[in-house]
Design a binder for these strands. Structure first.
Lengths: 196, 196
DNA sequence: TTGCCATATGTCAACATTGATATAGCCGTG
DNA sequence: CACGGCTATATCAATGTTGACATATGGCAA
């Protein structure tokens, strides 16, 4: 089974939903760490149903097209739980941005700064969004102490959000350091030119 | 062109080499951020040559099989430099480990801890390796101040290593926090059991 | 009433990537 | 001299993933 199958099982283990619902749910917070297109999600749901991990019931709707609402089965939940705790090796990294950086020494420093600044601002935006969600969760959690219980999906979502925030912060701070370093070099170069 | 093509161009822009050399070089430090198999590398080299971005000369060897040594062309260097500075959007994340975490609330806490501990130790190992390389680089750099010049491949490699270290540190610290949180919960649970 | 938007479910061809398999030269060891 | 191991290049089938295309319902606005 491909990871996407477990992503869908993970979503359905929290709440039943249609393919369309799942597509939207893939945006947050699983989507922080996994991603797939419609064209992959629908066939995967069909396959999961054939394997007996999910079932569906057609729900008729008046003001919009009917939908198939999927729910996880006991077999599905068992398979998911077993996969979740199975130790794994670190998969090969794939970071297209760092691949660009690898060849930045060939480029004009000003254009390099532009690249990094643009990318950093996107990460900063994400970071702000994650921090906002986190703040909301923390406010709501003050009443019940549910954020402590690992067996609660809410705690897991919160923990994943923390990881996302840490990741984005790290990326932003590295970008800033990189920009500062290149700018310092540019400034020195200007001095040299001015001297003559 | 696929990212792998630029990874290979990036390697050849630093030094010519055979397909076999490139496969080994893909391990460090590009490999920290990109990865491919032999079966993908050889055809990609053929394609790059057809496009005029690289050329090869057959080098005869006595004590081992002959090899094709590839070198980047001016067109290749230009294409690489242009691609490198072209701004990009953040690609969708894909972190299979965090996908497991998403469903950990279904699992036995002890098994969850085992999963996270195993993964953390792998990241800690990488971190140690990166830090060692970084220390070596910093020692060697004390003589010439080359680590300041963005237009030097060495500075770029060092900068990428810094990013790798930051990334691994972040992962390890998150894992530790996660383990501590679950362990605290387990301890509390033991107390409750003991009370009755 | 025409067209656009959101909901809803799918298919398909093209491309990226993996894992297995193949071949061959040369070295050193048993 | 047979075998394993390292160097070296390559192909192929299977699978994963994307992007484009297809289809249908119902609401709302020009």
């Amino acid at each position: 089974m491909i990871p996407l199958a477990y992503a869908l099982l993970g979503l359905l283990a929290r709440a039943p939903g249609s393919g369309y619902d799942l597509i939207r749910e893939m945006e947050e917070p699983v989507g922080f760490f996994w991603h797939a297109r419609r064209s992959q999600i629908y066939p995967t749901l069909t396959r999961l149903e054939k394997q007996g991990y999910i079932t569906h019931t057609v729900v008729e709707q008046r003001d919009r097209p009917d939908k198939k609402v999927y729910a996880i089965t006991d077999a599905g939940r068992a398979a998911l739980a077993a996969w979740a705790v199975e130790p794994m090796a670190i998969p090969p990294e794939r970071d297209a941005f760092m691949l660009k950086v690898y060849s930045l020494w060939l480029a004009d420093p000003r254009q390099a700064i532009n690249l990094i600044r643009t990318y950093a601002s996107q990460h900063a935006e994400r970071l702000a969004r994650y921090e906002e969600i986190s703040a909301t969760i923390e406010r709501n959690a003050e009443a019940g102490g549910e954020l402590q219980r690992m067996s609660s999906p809410r705690f897991i979502s919160y923990a994943m959000l923390r990881r996302g925030i840490e990741y984005e912060r790290g990326y932003v701070s590295w970008c800033r350091w990189m920009i500062e370093t290149i700018e310092r070099e540019l400034a020195e170069h200007v001095d040299e030119v001015d001297r003559y």
